[in-house]
Simulated scan of single mutants.
Amino acid sequence: MTEYLTNYRKYILKCLENEGCDFGQLLEYHTEKLHQFQHERFIHLIVMVLFALCTVITILAIALSEKLMLIPLAVLLLVLLVPYIKHYFFLENTVQLLYKDYDAIYKKVHGFSQEDLK
Protein backbone atom coordinates (compact mmCIF):
# COMPACT_ATOMS: atom_id res chain seq x y z
CA MET A 1 0.00 0.00 0.00
CA THR A 2 2.88 2.37 0.72
CA GLU A 3 4.26 2.07 -2.80
CA TYR A 4 0.79 2.31 -4.33
CA LEU A 5 -0.06 5.49 -2.42
CA THR A 6 3.30 7.06 -3.22
CA ASN A 7 2.93 6.30 -6.94
CA TYR A 8 -0.66 7.54 -6.95
CA ARG A 9 0.37 10.86 -5.40
CA LYS A 10 3.14 11.27 -8.00
CA TYR A 11 0.55 10.61 -10.71
CA ILE A 12 -1.78 13.28 -9.31
CA LEU A 13 1.03 15.82 -9.07
CA LYS A 14 2.00 15.14 -12.71
CA CYS A 15 -1.63 15.61 -13.75
CA LEU A 16 -1.80 18.92 -11.88
CA GLU A 17 1.24 20.16 -13.81
CA ASN A 18 -0.28 19.12 -17.15
CA GLU A 19 -2.61 21.89 -18.33
CA GLY A 20 -4.01 19.59 -21.05
CA CYS A 21 -5.47 17.27 -18.43
CA ASP A 22 -9.25 16.84 -18.13
CA PHE A 23 -9.48 18.09 -14.55
CA GLY A 24 -13.21 17.36 -14.29
CA GLN A 25 -12.60 13.69 -14.98
CA LEU A 26 -9.53 13.74 -12.73
CA LEU A 27 -11.64 15.21 -9.92
CA GLU A 28 -14.14 12.34 -10.18
CA TYR A 29 -11.34 9.77 -10.27
CA HIS A 30 -9.53 11.37 -7.34
CA THR A 31 -12.74 11.53 -5.29
CA GLU A 32 -13.29 7.80 -5.78
CA LYS A 33 -9.68 7.03 -4.86
CA LEU A 34 -9.95 9.23 -1.75
CA HIS A 35 -12.93 7.18 -0.58
CA GLN A 36 -10.92 3.99 -1.03
CA PHE A 37 -7.91 5.38 0.83
CA GLN A 38 -10.13 6.67 3.65
CA HIS A 39 -11.63 3.20 4.02
CA GLU A 40 -8.16 1.64 4.06
CA ARG A 41 -7.02 4.15 6.67
CA PHE A 42 -10.08 3.44 8.85
CA ILE A 43 -9.55 -0.33 8.73
CA HIS A 44 -5.89 0.13 9.64
CA LEU A 45 -6.89 2.36 12.55
CA ILE A 46 -9.24 -0.29 13.93
CA VAL A 47 -6.65 -3.06 13.59
CA MET A 48 -3.89 -0.89 15.08
CA VAL A 49 -6.02 0.04 18.11
CA LEU A 50 -7.01 -3.58 18.71
CA PHE A 51 -3.39 -4.66 18.35
CA ALA A 52 -2.30 -1.97 20.82
CA LEU A 53 -5.00 -3.09 23.26
CA CYS A 54 -3.76 -6.67 23.04
CA THR A 55 -0.24 -5.44 23.74
CA VAL A 56 -1.32 -3.43 26.78
CA ILE A 57 -3.45 -6.29 28.11
CA THR A 58 -0.52 -8.69 27.74
CA ILE A 59 1.83 -6.31 29.57
CA LEU A 60 -0.75 -5.85 32.34
CA ALA A 61 -1.19 -9.61 32.59
CA ILE A 62 2.56 -10.00 33.01
CA ALA A 63 2.68 -7.29 35.68
CA LEU A 64 -0.33 -8.55 37.64
CA SER A 65 0.07 -12.31 37.37
CA GLU A 66 3.87 -12.41 37.19
CA LYS A 67 3.69 -15.10 34.49
CA LEU A 68 7.03 -14.78 32.77
CA MET A 69 5.98 -17.06 29.94
CA LEU A 70 3.94 -14.14 28.52
CA ILE A 71 7.03 -11.98 28.03
CA PRO A 72 7.85 -13.41 24.56
CA LEU A 73 4.27 -12.66 23.49
CA ALA A 74 4.55 -9.07 24.76
CA VAL A 75 7.87 -8.60 22.96
CA LEU A 76 6.43 -10.02 19.74
CA LEU A 77 3.39 -7.74 19.96
CA LEU A 78 5.59 -4.69 20.58
CA VAL A 79 7.91 -5.59 17.70
CA LEU A 80 4.91 -5.86 15.37
CA LEU A 81 3.10 -2.83 16.77
CA VAL A 82 5.87 -0.32 16.06
CA PRO A 83 5.94 -0.82 12.26
CA TYR A 84 2.15 -0.95 12.23
CA ILE A 85 1.97 2.47 13.91
CA LYS A 86 4.54 3.79 11.45
CA HIS A 87 2.49 2.49 8.51
CA TYR A 88 -0.73 3.96 9.90
CA PHE A 89 0.86 7.38 10.26
CA PHE A 90 2.14 7.15 6.69
CA LEU A 91 -1.43 6.45 5.56
CA GLU A 92 -2.80 9.30 7.67
CA ASN A 93 -0.27 11.87 6.46
CA THR A 94 -0.51 10.84 2.81
CA VAL A 95 -4.30 10.98 2.79
CA GLN A 96 -4.08 14.49 4.26
CA LEU A 97 -1.77 15.45 1.38
CA LEU A 98 -4.32 13.97 -1.02
CA TYR A 99 -6.93 16.31 0.47
CA LYS A 100 -4.72 19.24 -0.52
CA ASP A 101 -4.36 17.76 -4.00
CA TYR A 102 -8.15 17.47 -4.13
CA ASP A 103 -8.42 21.20 -3.36
CA ALA A 104 -5.94 21.99 -6.14
CA ILE A 105 -7.89 19.89 -8.65
CA TYR A 106 -11.18 21.41 -7.49
CA LYS A 107 -9.76 24.89 -8.01
CA LYS A 108 -8.72 24.00 -11.57
CA VAL A 109 -12.25 22.74 -12.30
CA HIS A 110 -14.34 25.35 -10.50
CA GLY A 111 -11.98 28.32 -10.20
CA PHE A 112 -12.01 28.53 -6.40
CA SER A 113 -11.13 26.47 -3.37
CA GLN A 114 -11.03 26.63 0.38
CA GLU A 115 -7.66 28.37 0.23
CA ASP A 116 -9.30 31.37 -1.47
CA LEU A 117 -11.52 31.94 1.57
CA LYS A 118 -8.61 32.66 3.90
Rank of each mutant, 00 (worst) to 15 (best):
1 M>T: 14
2 T>M: 08
2 T>G: 12
3 E>R: 12
3 E>M: 10
4 Y>T: 14
5 L>S: 07
5 L>H: 08
5 L>F: 07
6 T>D: 15
7 N>S: 10
9 R>V: 03
10 K>W: 03
11 Y>H: 12
12 I>L: 02
12 I>S: 03
12 I>K: 00
13 L>V: 06
13 L>P: 01
14 K>T: 14
15 C>V: 01
15 C>D: 06
16 L>Y: 04
16 L>Q: 01
17 E>K: 11
17 E>Y: 08
17 E>F: 15
19 E>D: 06
19 E>I: 05
19 E>F: 13
20 G>A: 04
20 G>C: 01
21 C>G: 01
21 C>P: 04
25 Q>Y: 09
25 Q>C: 05
29 Y>H: 12
30 H>I: 09
35 H>C: 03
36 Q>T: 05
37 F>T: 04
37 F>G: 00
38 Q>I: 07
38 Q>K: 14
39 H>Y: 11
39 H>L: 12
39 H>T: 10
40 E>I: 05
40 E>D: 13
41 R>L: 04
42 F>E: 07
43 I>L: 11
43 I>A: 06
43 I>R: 15
43 I>W: 05
44 H>P: 02
45 L>M: 12
45 L>D: 04
46 I>T: 06
46 I>D: 12
46 I>E: 07
47 V>D: 04
48 M>N: 15
48 M>H: 08
48 M>E: 11
49 V>N: 01
50 L>A: 13
50 L>E: 12
51 F>G: 10
52 A>C: 15
52 A>M: 06
53 L>C: 06
54 C>P: 06
54 C>Q: 02
54 C>H: 08
55 T>H: 04
57 I>N: 14
58 T>D: 13
59 I>V: 13
61 A>M: 14
61 A>D: 11
61 A>R: 12
62 I>T: 08
62 I>K: 00
63 A>C: 10
63 A>W: 09
65 S>I: 01
66 E>T: 09
66 E>M: 14
67 K>W: 15
68 L>A: 08
69 M>E: 07
69 M>Y: 12
69 M>R: 11
70 L>W: 04
71 I>A: 09
71 I>D: 10
72 P>N: 02
72 P>I: 02
74 A>E: 00
74 A>Q: 14
75 V>F: 07
75 V>A: 15
76 L>Y: 04
76 L>Q: 05
76 L>M: 06
81 L>C: 14
82 V>F: 15
82 V>G: 12
82 V>P: 15
83 P>M: 04
83 P>E: 02
84 Y>Q: 04
84 Y>E: 15
86 K>P: 00
86 K>I: 08
88 Y>K: 01
88 Y>T: 00
90 F>T: 00
91 L>N: 05
92 E>A: 13
92 E>Y: 11
93 N>P: 11
93 N>Q: 05
94 T>Q: 02
95 V>T: 15
95 V>F: 05
96 Q>F: 07
97 L>F: 03
98 L>W: 12
98 L>Y: 02
98 L>H: 02
99 Y>I: 02
101 D>S: 07
102 Y>A: 05
102 Y>D: 03
103 D>W: 01
103 D>Q: 07
104 A>H: 09
104 A>C: 10
105 I>C: 01
106 Y>P: 05
106 Y>L: 07
107 K>F: 00
108 K>A: 05
109 V>I: 09
109 V>E: 00
110 H>D: 06
110 H>C: 03
111 G>M: 02
112 F>N: 10
114 Q>V: 10
115 E>I: 07
116 D>S: 11
117 L>T: 11
